[in-house]
Design a protein around this nucleic acid. Structure first.
Length: 796
DNA sequence: CAACTAGATCTTTTT
DNA sequence: GATCTAGTTG
């Protein structure tokens, strides 16, 4: 509680003195437009800032903070500013500092919901039955723990996966339901055993002195609800509250905010109902729609002047989002010139789409599209689902186009990092059973399932953590042979490393290195020694993959340099699951639409606009129409990321689960207003004059399908078809290099062929439309005939 | 006990 | 196609 003291004296006198001393006009206010200024200057009472995409939301928010400080209304530690991502928090901090002209070190309560909750929870942990230094479990640990409970309950975890239970529990926690509060309507969840398992899970977490992500909020809300005195402290402390991305708050976050703002109602929420895209993880658009009811007398300010995109891009986005019901309603406008229309293009399949986008990116880089040249950093590909990324990565690797994947498999989620972290955890807290289970046989120590079961039994019988159980098992001789020896060593090592960490000597970085080395973990990724007697033999990584893992471990150890101790590092990592390494080279960005929220790029590509992919099959299968609205908001988010050029595309065929499927263009394409769209005809994509074939086939396929679904009579679709026809006078096509059975018959066994990805090879067998080919470099593969060309320049 | 093989299951989106 | 699991073999 010591750090609490600084604010215990309200110092009203000095505040008003500062308020009077403040300059009547502040230069930073002059940079704002009227709406922004209104939102900034309404400092007291509830304010809802409805900020459309690109309307200067962050600017308004940061200026508001500056204004609060500058007018003396609040001191830095009296402002609670909440965001969803660490990135947003960092951005806000740096912008406040910039506007203020000095660094803001003194804003301890600016951060994510989760990091702020941890801070609060660490001070009152005992109120919810936790001890100090509780650990924060990530999703992986959470699932593993649940799996144990599910199995212990005699449930077939095949039919009822632990993952599903985790989802159910998460949703409950998002709604701030403790096991006692789960409504009866949920009784059937997880085969009727959901609530009971939820209760067991919470008990188990408590025993482990651990919390999961959802608990961070839930526990704090519980504390606020059951301990008015504690709540009062924080209400008093946080004189002004600011919330970013309010449309993404879930019920627990909403309650948390309402409890805190309950006294003074000095709360300013910024959000955009049209950008609510996290309903699946419990976000309630209702929170923002209801704001005026929740906070009577609220001032609502709309930011509608857009500073990011051209009118055509805004028009297209506006046309799509207009199809949604239940909006608060905003109309974005801009003063910039019309610019390019949103470009729409169809492709034969996903690979062709990737190829075309790759070519287009290179063209735009050179400035050969009649536009200014763009840097690769200015361009982004935004996909609906991460598996769409592969096609682009494959293609970009083959043509040598530098790219970066944002929000991909994250550093701290990698296996080797998690293994290493488990060692560290076990060193810091020897009762961390989950960490013990993770590393006990990694690297292989000859301790399999049976040995672990023995340890678990002994630990349970004696009521001690697994690590102590292991020590006892060795003493008692319950585990024999090689395994016993290795286990004994592990137990000894861990306590030795623990003493080092306790002594703070050597440095955390060195301790980490020692742990990884002496545990044999690093060794695991190295080639076996050729000569065991030669200690100086230089060791190479096993393979390319192992090399990457070793690199990552090095990076992990390096990251430790900035921390006082291992414990501090572990806390940092559990909250910041992102890779912070910064790259300098120019690269195209590839990311999901979700990851793109809040970002902007001069050039944006939006591939895969197909029914079943976007909107996703899941939302289409789900009962009501409501899921589609969220998908539509996602489309809106995507389009509004673009500043100058936005290209939407779809493919007629795509591989789903390894199976080829024909795709229909997304309903969102039909919703694009004609006036803002330009249809591009597919240029020759295969080079050498045999390209038009793909589009011809796509079209005939389309017409066949059009008979069964009149989707294709919609304006958007007709437009596309007409554009196609007109681009090919007389409907003539040139040399068709094609597809399906006809093309296969063109190939013969023994023929030398070329494949985009695998290179050159010879056909060794033909089955239907598939060719078995022995590639010179890639080995024997089965590929679809259409992806292969003969090695003659004019194959047919 | 580990290493290998066959078969199932899967894909949203993430603090 | 890729990954995870159960089941088999060494």
């Amino acid at each position: 509680m010591s750090s609490f003291d600084e604010s215990e004296a309200p110092a009203a006198g000095s505040l008003s003195a500062r308020a009077m001393a403040a300059r009547p006009t502040a230069p930073y206010l002059d940079d704002l437009n009227p709406a922004q200024r209104e939102a900034v200057e309404a400092l007291d009472g509830p304010v809802l800032m409805l900020a459309g995409a690109g309307t200067g939301k962050t600017k308004a928010l940061t200026t508001r903070i500056v204004h609060l400080l500058n007018t003396g209304k609040a001191r830095p530690h009296e402002i609670l500013a909440v965001t969803f991502t660490n990135k947003a928090a960092r951005e806000m901090k740096s912008r406040v500092g910039r506007t203020l002209g000095e660094a803001v070190e003194g804003m301890p309560w600016m951060g994510t919901f989760h990091s702020i909750c941890v801070k609060i929870l660490r001070r009152h942990q005992e109120l919810v039955g936790l001890r100090s230094n509780f650990t924060i479990l990530d999703t992986d640990d959470q699932i593993r723990l649940l799996k144990q409970l599910v199995r212990a309950a005699g449930i077939d975890d095949k039919r009822w996966p632990a993952r599903a239970l985790a989802g159910v529990i998460d949703q409950w926690k998002n709604r701030a339901w403790t096991p006692d509060n789960v409504p009866v309507s949920e009784a059937s969840a997880y085969d009727g055993k959901g609530v009971a398992l939820y209760r067991q899970y919470q008990t188990r977490l408590c025993e482990l002195n651990a919390v999961d992500f959802g608990d961070l909020l839930l526990h704090v809300v519980t504390i606020f609800q059951t301990h008015p005195d504690v709540l009062e402290q924080y209400r008093h402390r946080f004189r002004y509250i600011l919330v970013d991305e309010y449309q993404d708050t879930n019920v627990a976050q909403y309650l948390w905010l309402r409890l805190l703002a309950g006294g003074h109602s000095n709360i300013c929420c910024v959000g955009d109902d049209d950008q609510s895209i996290y309903g699946w993880r419990g976000a309630e658009v209702g929170n923002i729609l209801r704001f005026e009811k929740d906070f009577p007398g609220a001032k609502v300010v709309r930011l509608e002047q857009n500073y990011r995109s051209t009118p055509h891009i805004l028009g297209a986005a506006g046309g799509v989002i207009a199809a949604n019901k239940g909006r608060l309603g905003k109309e974005l406008w801009t003063e910039t010139e019309a610019g390019e229309k949103v470009r729409l293009i169809g492709h034969w399949d996903g690979e062709e789409e990737a190829r075309w986008i790759g070519d287009e990116i290179e063209a735009m880089q050179r400035g050969t599209r009649g536009l200014r040249p763009f840097s690769l950093d200015d361009m982004a590909i935004l996909v609906r689902a991460s598996h769409q990324m592969r096609a682009f990565e494959d293609r970009f690797l083959t043509i040598g186009l530098p790219y970066r994947v944002i929000g991909g498999p994250r550093f701290y989620e990698r296996m080797e990092i998690r293994d290493a972290m488990a060692y560290f955890r076990l060193v810091i807290s020897p009762s961390d059973d989950l960490a013990f289970e993770r590393v006990v046989n990694t690297p292989k120590r000859g301790l399999g399932e049976k040995a672990v079961q023995t340890i678990q039994r002994i630990a349970r019988e004696n009521g001690v953590p697994l690590l102590d159980g292991a020590a006892m098992a060795v003493e008692q001789g319950a585990i024999k042979g090689k395994g016993a020896q290795a286990l004994g060593k592990l137990v000894m090592d861990l306590s030795r490393w623990g003493r080092m960490a306790g002594a703070g000597e050597p440095s955390p970085r060195d301790i980490a290195e020692i742990i990884l080395d002496e545990s044999g973990y690093t060794e695991m990724w190295l080639k076996p020694k050729e000569d065991p007697d030669d200690p100086d033999e230089s060791r190479q990584p096993k393979d390319h993959e192992a090399e990457g893992r070793l690199e990552n471990l090095k990076e992990l150890v390096k990251a430790l340099e900035q921390f006082e101790n291992l414990a501090g590092f572990l806390e940092h990592v559990s909250l910041i699951m992102e890779n912070e390494s910064e790259e300098q080279a120019e690269k195209v960005s590839i990311m999901t639409l979700h990851a793109a929220k809040g970002l902007e790029f001069p050039v944006v590509f939006l591939p895969g606009w197909e029914e079943g992919l976007f909107p996703s099959q899941r939302t289409l299968d789900a009962p009501p129409e409501n899921g589609v609205e969220e998908e539509r908001r996602l489309a809106y988010v995507g389009i509004t990321r673009a500043e100058e050029v936005c290209t939407i595309s779809f493919a007629g065929n795509r591989r789903v689960f390894g199976q080829w499927q024909s795709q229909r263009p997304s309903r969102f394409i039909d919703e694009l207003p004609e006036a803002h769209v330009e249809v591009l005809t597919p240029p020759g994509l295969y080079g050498g004059g045999y390209g038009a074939a793909a589009s011809m086939h796509e079209e005939s396929g389309l017409e066949a399908r059009a008979a069964e679904a009149n989707v294709y009579n919609s304006p958007g679709w007709r437009r596309l078809r007409e554009a196609r026809m007109s681009s090919r006078p007389g409907g003539q096509t040139r040399g068709a290099a094609v597809i399906d059975a006809q093309a296969v018959s063109k190939h013969v066994v023994g023929e030398r062929v070329f494949h985009q990805k695998f290179g050159y090879g010879a056909i060794i067998a033909i089955e239907g439309d598939k060719l078995e080919i022995a590639f010179e470099k890639a080995g024997v593969k089965k590929v679809v005939a259409r992806f292969v060309t003969g090695t003659d320049d004019v194959p047919f």
